[in-house]
């Protein structure tokens, strides 16, 4: 680790990233802070008064807006880039799998004699049946791709290091469970391919030391592949494993919010010396105002208003209000 702030002098060659505007601008701090504070007060005021509306009634009892504020106004560190969307994209595709899975389960019969016919019926006769099956099938592949990319991101960014070790461990369990989903789901259509691949997978399991044979027996529901095997795989695939995955994603995200996400490792809090807007301001050089709707640094991707432009300028106000101080605790 380098010297602590603010004495750190050495400029990192790759400071910041595409998010940081080419010409960041020092904020007229007080006015920004005031604006934001005003907005916050307004929000609190609003929720307190909300007794008249149904939403307000619920809010007074569960304090949802408090949680909401804590989740939404928390900050993501400087330099956060597109690689940080891979985790939530994985979560999105998992949600898609859950939804399409529910629809598939409405038509599926987990019996060795009827499974194939029920899938054939769903594919050929049911309205949009093949499309929904396609979503579920290709969704599985996409989820595998996204989860591996997400893991690669956290690996190469060193995000598994202190204090996020536990989140890495949860993640590894999640990736294993996701593979288990692929394995158990593959059998369900009960065609030649899935049947024989599953037999092999099971034989491989059985070749494992100590627990191998028992685990294989458990999966097969007995020494031989039988009709019960299919319902066992089905129960694992649509109930047990997704339940576990859901719970672990909950724990994973709890830690993400609690610890905050990392900044890319090459981003440093201190800016390199020279051409610093701060210094320009200090020297009395007038700089472009980032506060307008046509501020150069309002990234097109997020057509946000003036507040947005200010935030986008990276060099934000001295305001550190908001529930984002957890890590220092």
């Amino acid at each position: 680790m380098k010297l602590p702030l603010p004495t750190r002098k050495k400029a990192s060659p790759v400071d910041g990233n595409g998010d940081d505007p080419a010409a960041p601008v020092e904020q007229a701090g007080p006015s920004k802070a005031e604006k934001r504070a005003a907005m916050k007060t307004a929000a609190i005021h609003h929720s307190a008064e909300g007794g008249a509306t149904a939403a307000g009634w619920v809010d007074q009892r569960v304090n949802a807006s408090g949680i909401y504020t804590a989740l939404l106004t928390r900050k993501v560190p400087k330099g956060t880039n597109w690689f940080y969307t891979l985790g939530s994209a994985t979560m999105f595709i998992f949600a898609m799998q859950a939804i399409t899975g529910v629809f598939l389960s409405m038509y599926y019969t987990p019996s060795a004699t009827q499974a194939y016919a029920s899938i054939a019926h769903l594919t050929n006769d049911v309205f949009m049946g093949e499309f929904v099956r396609g979503l579920h099938k290709w969704g599985a592949s996409l989820m595998i791709i996204l989860i591996f990319l997400h893991m690669a991101r956290t690996f190469f960014f060193g995000a598994y290091k202190y204090p996020r070790e536990l989140n890495w461990v949860i993640g590894v369990v999640l990736i294993i469970l996701t593979m288990v989903m692929g394995l158990t789901g593959y059998l369900l259509p009960f065609d030649q391919r899935s049947f024989w691949a599953t037999i092999v997978a099971n034989n491989i399991t059985a070749s494992g030391p100590v627990v191998g044979p028992y685990l294989a027996d458990f999966l097969r529901a007995g020494p031989d592949f039988s009709a019960t095997t299919l319902s066992r795989f089905y129960a694992l695939h649509m109930l047990a494993v997704p339940g576990l995955i859901g719970a672990l994603i909950g724990a994973h995200l709890f830690l993400v919010v609690k610890l905050g996400t990392t900044a890319p490792p090459w981003v440093r809090a201190a800016r390199p010396k020279g051409a610093r807007p701060t210094e320009m301001v200090a020297a009395g050089v007038p700089v472009a105002v980032s506060d307008g709707p046509d501020a150069p640094d309002a990234a097109p991707a997020n057509g946000a208003g003036p507040e947005g432009a200010a935030e986008e300028a990276g060099e934000s106000t001295p305001d550190d209000a908001g529930p984002d101080g957890e890590v220092s605790a």
């Binding site: 106004t73 900050k75 993501v76 400087k78 969307t85 204090p163 997020n302 550190d320 890590v327």
Partner: peptide
């Protein structure tokens, strides 16, 4: 300790989760 201190600085200089991170996530979705 140094890591946490640096991280706190980075976070202060960061952006609010809403709408910035949400925006990127949604585009990805």
């Amino acid at each position: 300790e140094e890591y946490l201190r640096e991280y706190e600085q980075l976070k202060k200089k960061g952006k609010a989760f809403f709408p910035y991170a949400i925006m990127k996530d949604s585009v990805m979705f």
